[in-house]
Design a protein around this nucleic acid. Structure first.
Length: 278
DNA sequence: TACATATGATCAT
DNA sequence: TGATCCTATGTAA
């Protein structure tokens, strides 16, 4: 679940459900000691930056949540909320709604200076167009010698991109993941950024990552794209490219597995290296 | 029952 | 680069 679209979706839904209300807060699992300090406090706002979530409570209390790889929120109506599982780190409850959080990388109370330090480490977030400056991402890319596929996973370059969106956005731009980041030209960057804005927005609204164009899988709309045809290359190694039918390949890049179509995303280093040196 | 794997990130070496 | 943390799920044994 959790790339930037998930954090922003949680922020929107939790703000809507809980902001302005005093909440019951506890940690059924017992591993979030800060719960007691929040219990009974009014939640003022919920906001996301990249993959981070920040819950502002009355009395200057600030909760930071990062889902990491395994974190999940489950949402229930107050009447239907089940007993929390033994892994439930945090439970928020109003008279109407309840959420259970399990498996987060971070669930902690932080101070304003820690918030500032955290945000200072993040690049622009395509889901925060009002206060994101894509020029910072462009500048960061140009400074890197690493492959663009690795740079895109770095939250200091673009905040909110994860392993699915990195593979998909590079495929859609026809850019090979191994291309050095600083070789990406201005037009390619613009295409990547604009596509991230569009894809993350769609993901935030729908709650799922869908990157294929409906026409490429015989669907009428993105909402109708079948579950097994939502993406072009992510986790599709060995399968046929939806555009050219070349076999999709995968390899480790930046500590994670990246996938690409060797044909649609040519002009990578392999291609350059195997060209005759005439 | 065990193991592998996963949309993440940090810290040590 | 590798170890580590966190949880859930699917597959193999």
């Amino acid at each position: 679940m959790p790339e930037g679209h998930t954090a922003h979706r949680c922020a929107r839904l939790h703000h809507k459900a809980f902001a302005g209300r005093a909440l019951r807060v506890d940690s059924p699992q017992g591993r979030f000691a800060g719960a007691a300090a929040l219990d009974g406090c009014r939640l003022d706002s919920v906001e996301a930056y990249g993959k981070h979530l920040f819950y502002r409570f009355a009395g200057e209390r600030l909760l930071h949540v990062h889902l990491g790889l395994f974190g999940r929120f489950h949402r229930f109506s107050a009447a239907r909320a089940p007993e929390p599982s033994p892994a439930t780190r945090l439970r928020l409850a109003s008279e109407r709604a309840v959420v259970h959080l399990s498996g987060p990388t971070a669930c902690e109370l932080i101070e304003e200076d820690e918030l500032a330090a955290l945000l200072a480490r993040l690049g622009p977030d395509p889901l925060r167009l009002h206060d994101a400056d894509p020029e910072r991402a462009w500048a960061a890319l140009q400074r890197r010698r690493s492959p663009v596929g690795q740079a895109l996973l770095d939250q200091a370059v673009v905040a909110g991109v994860g392993n699915v969106y990195r593979a998909e956005v590079l495929f859609r731009a026809g850019v090979h993941p191994d291309r050095p980041a600083h070789e990406i030209d201005r037009a390619e960057f613009a295409a990547l950024w604009d596509d991230l804005v569009a894809l993350l927005r769609l993901g935030e609204r729908s709650g799922r990552i869908v990157t294929v164009e409906p026409a490429h899988v015989g669907a009428a709309t993105r909402a109708q794209v079948p579950d097994d045809a939502r993406v072009y290359v992510y986790r599709r190694a060995g399968a046929a490219c939806r555009i050219c039918h070349t076999t999709i390949v995968a390899w480790p890049l930046g500590g994670r597995t990246v996938s690409a179509c060797p044909s649609c995303q040519a002009a990578g280093v392999e291609v350059a290296a195997t060209e005759p040196a005439s």
